[in-house]
Amino acid sequence: KKKYVIKVYFEDTGKEVEIEAESKEEALEAAKRLAEELGLKIKKVEIYP
């Protein structure tokens, strides 16, 4: 089964997080949740198959 690796870059902090997920949708949801939890804004998202 294919996994996606999503790199999320946050504004202000210069922080980046990698998330593995089964689908792009799932990964983007996780990225949004994470940003909310951390109180950060997402600057850029890169998706690698």
Rank of each mutant, 00 (worst) to 15 (best):
V5Q: 10
F10H: 00
G39W: 01
K44C: 05
A31T: 03
E18W: 10
L28H: 12
A30P: 00
K15H: 15
E36M: 11
Y4I: 15
A35M: 05
Y9R: 05
E36I: 13
G14H: 06
A27K: 00
E29R: 11
E46M: 10
V45N: 01
A21V: 14
K15D: 05
L34F: 15
T13E: 14
K43Q: 12
A31W: 02
S23M: 02
E16D: 15
A30K: 09
K24R: 08
I6N: 00
Y9C: 02
E29T: 15
I19P: 00
I19W: 12
Y9H: 11
K1D: 15
K15W: 08
Y48G: 14
K1T: 11
V5R: 10
E11H: 09
K41C: 10
K2T: 13
Y4T: 14
E20G: 10
V5E: 04
Y48F: 15
E11T: 04
I19H: 01
E26H: 12
I47A: 05
I19T: 03
F10Y: 04
I47G: 05
L34K: 11
Y48E: 04
L40A: 09
K7A: 06
A30E: 13
A27D: 00
G14K: 10
K3W: 10
E37L: 05
Y9S: 08
R33M: 08
V17G: 04
I47Y: 15
A31L: 05
I47N: 03
E25D: 14
V5W: 14
E11Q: 15
E18I: 15
F10Q: 00
R33Q: 07
D12I: 15
E25W: 04
Y9T: 09
A21H: 12
K44P: 00
L40F: 06
I19F: 09
E25G: 04
A27I: 06
Y4P: 02
Y4L: 10
A30R: 15
E18K: 03
P49T: 06
E36T: 12
E46G: 02
E22S: 08
Y4E: 03
I47F: 10
K24E: 14
A31E: 00
E18T: 09
L34V: 15
L34N: 02
A30Y: 10
Y48S: 07
S23W: 03
K43R: 14
G14C: 06
L28Y: 13
R33A: 03
V5N: 04
A35N: 01
E11V: 11
K44D: 05
E11F: 08
K24C: 15
R33G: 06
Y9Q: 06
E26I: 04
P49I: 12
E46H: 13
V5F: 09
K32R: 06
E18H: 09
E25T: 06
K7G: 02
I19Y: 14
E16M: 08
E46N: 08
K3C: 03
E26V: 05
K15G: 07
E37F: 03
E46R: 04
E37Q: 10
I6M: 10
E36F: 08
K43N: 10
V45H: 04
F10W: 11
I6S: 02
Y48K: 06
E37A: 05
V45D: 00
K41E: 11
K41H: 12
K15F: 13
V45W: 04
I6L: 06
V5S: 05
E37D: 12
E26F: 11
E36V: 13
E20W: 09
K7W: 05
F10S: 01
I47C: 03
S23C: 03
F10K: 00
P49L: 09
K43W: 08
G39V: 02
A30L: 15
F10A: 01
E16P: 07
E46K: 05
A31M: 10
A31C: 09
R33C: 04
E36W: 13
L34T: 08
K2W: 02
E37S: 10
A21F: 08
T13D: 04
V45T: 06
E46V: 15
I6E: 00
Y48L: 14
I42C: 02
Y48R: 08
K43I: 14
V17S: 08
V8T: 01
K7I: 11
A35G: 09
K24A: 14
L40K: 06
K1M: 15
